[in-house]
């Protein structure tokens, strides 16, 4: 596998095959991030395309201060957030802890969901209901195996905030799942 420096140099020199390779290496990361932030498939693909077009346009400005994947994820995150802003989708920076937790964990007809009897599917739905920043951090940490520092670089948040968001997101999900588990055990 070609290292970042060699790959970037080849892309800058106009090697399209190298850019194709760069896309192949990072398309999963971009798809994960955009896929979590944006709902419609048409928008997702268009946005992923725009992300890589931006990468191609700005690659000569990449200064190797971070990993190439972190830099690409930063572009994807910014473009995803801008897309949500354009669509007037609320980004909702962490709301008041208690009210948000109460709202998120509240029982909105758990019986209906229990019929589904698929905790994993329910948990996935719950992840989708989280505010965009939470979803991004969860995905980068658990799916793309980024560390707190890298996630901080991508999102522009201090490491402490990243840790806090991660803890709270998992805690919220756990509280909600616990309710379903409780119901399951009662049945």
């Amino acid at each position: 596998m070609m290292d970042d420096q060699a790959l970037v140099s080849r892309v800058i020199s106009g090697d399209k095959q190298a850019f194709r390779l760069l896309i192949k290496q990072h398309e999963r990361l971009v798809a994960h991030m955009i896929g979590r932030l944006v709902d419609r498939n048409e928008d997702r693909e268009e946005l992923c395309q725009d992300v890589f077009l931006k990468v191609y346009e700005k690659i000569s400005e990449f200064n190797f201060q971070s990993k190439l994947s972190t830099w690409i994820a930063t572009i994807a995150y910014r473009m995803g957030v801008n897309h949500l802003r354009k669509k007037k989708i609320e980004l909702s920076d962490i709301p008041e802890e208690e009210s948000f937790t109460a709202h998120f964990v509240s029982d909105n007809d758990p019986q209906e969901n229990m019929e589904d009897n698929e905790i994993e599917a329910i948990t996935l739905k719950l992840i989708d209901q989280l505010p965009p920043h939470y979803k991004t951090i969860l995905t980068l940490y658990h799916v793309d195996q980024m560390n707190y520092g890298e996630i901080g670089e991508v999102t522009g948040m201090p490491e402490g905030t990243v840790k806090n968001y991660l803890f709270r997101a998992r805690n919220l999900l756990k509280e909600k799942v616990k309710k379903y588990l409780g119901n399951e055990q009662l049945l």
Partner: peptide, 23 residues
């Protein structure tokens, strides 16, 4: 138990993937 479910699910890749001809 609840955390176990949450962590297991979080490790799952999101379903959305780009088409094979994307690049």
């Amino acid at each position: 138990q609840a955390y176990q479910k949450v962590f297991d699910t979080l490790k799952r890749e999101p379903e959305y993937t780009l088409p094979v001809y994307f690049a």
